[in-house]
Amino acid sequence: MLSRTADGLYWLARYAERADSTGRLLMMGRKLAMLPDGVSGDDWRSVLRVTASESFVTPEADVSEGDAVGILLLDPANPASVRACIDKARANGRAVRTAITLEMWEALNDGWRRLERMPLDKAVRDLAGLVDWSRGYVARFRGAVSTSMLRNEGHDFLRIGSAVERADTTLRLLDVNYHLLLPEGDAIGGHRDHYRWNALLQTLSGLRAYYHVYRDNVRPWHIADFLLTNRVFPRSLAFSVGQMRYHLERLAQEHGRRTDCHRSIELFDDRLARMGDGDIFQYGLHEFVLESQAELNRISREIGEAYHF
């Protein structure tokens, strides 16, 4: 496979996942706004921070829901906005048109301009419907990949891109919410913590799965384990890293060579496998997340170097 095709498939998957994740974050902000203590500008700022979009507002600004919707849903200049991600996913799909199926292209091409001329006030009013549409757009593409694409190296690059983006989103979301929900001196386990941790799990479609695993109240140390080391929850760090390892191994066998990215992903995956219950919280959640983000970024660069994109 040509390196530019591998690059296009990898980033097509990343932008599609990012569009879905950004929509989820907007709905998390909306859910927090419905809590008894409401949501403050600092809370909306934290939603921007997860997507590295904080630079689109001034440091002293009190960020409103309208600000967040404009930046994260509609702004074409923000590479994390739903509109920009859908545009870039389609552009990458067009660039690798011969490497994807007709069903995949139709999923990318259908209605992709919906957000182009959307007024901000209408977007705020219809936020839930627009997020549902964007998630459905991405879900249709995922379904087309699942049911129509050959399980060849192109499929491997798509799956690697999806896994990298999911892992990155989970790490960002957990780190930002750790500081939001557990400020210095605050007691753990109050109603404020409970509702906001629930909102975090709902954002990742993991609330029912969490209760299935732990069958008790939401506890920060259990959430850390669930989102970082659980190997059967599809948005956990460990699951995503496992997917990266599997598809990179397939590529190594296809090309007959192993590179730094293969060795790095094995070490990362093995480290996560050794983590026991509560180990991450005792180690330091913030420190572990920062280290994992740095490792994930390094592996992503190594993948690009290995396959020349």
Rank of each mutant, 00 (worst) to 15 (best):
A252N: 06
V164K: 01
L237E: 06
L182Y: 07
L173F: 08
V164F: 15
T229V: 15
T259I: 02
R166L: 13
R208K: 10
A163T: 11
H191E: 14
L204Y: 07
V241M: 12
F239C: 06
N217Q: 09
R159V: 01
H212C: 05
A252T: 00
R235I: 04
S240V: 00
F226Y: 07
L182K: 03
R235A: 08
L181F: 12
G256W: 00
F226W: 03
E249D: 10
P220H: 04
M244A: 07
A187V: 12
G256C: 01
E165N: 04
L181H: 12
F233R: 04
F239T: 10
F233S: 05
I223K: 09
Q253A: 12
S240P: 01
M244I: 15
D175Q: 04
Y178E: 03
H194S: 14
Y246W: 13
H262M: 01
V164C: 06
S240R: 03
E254F: 09
H255C: 08
N230G: 07
L201P: 08
F233L: 07
S162M: 09
L174H: 02
R219D: 10
V164S: 00
S240K: 04
L227H: 02
N230W: 04
H179V: 05
R166W: 03
L237Y: 07
T229W: 08
L173G: 09
T170W: 09
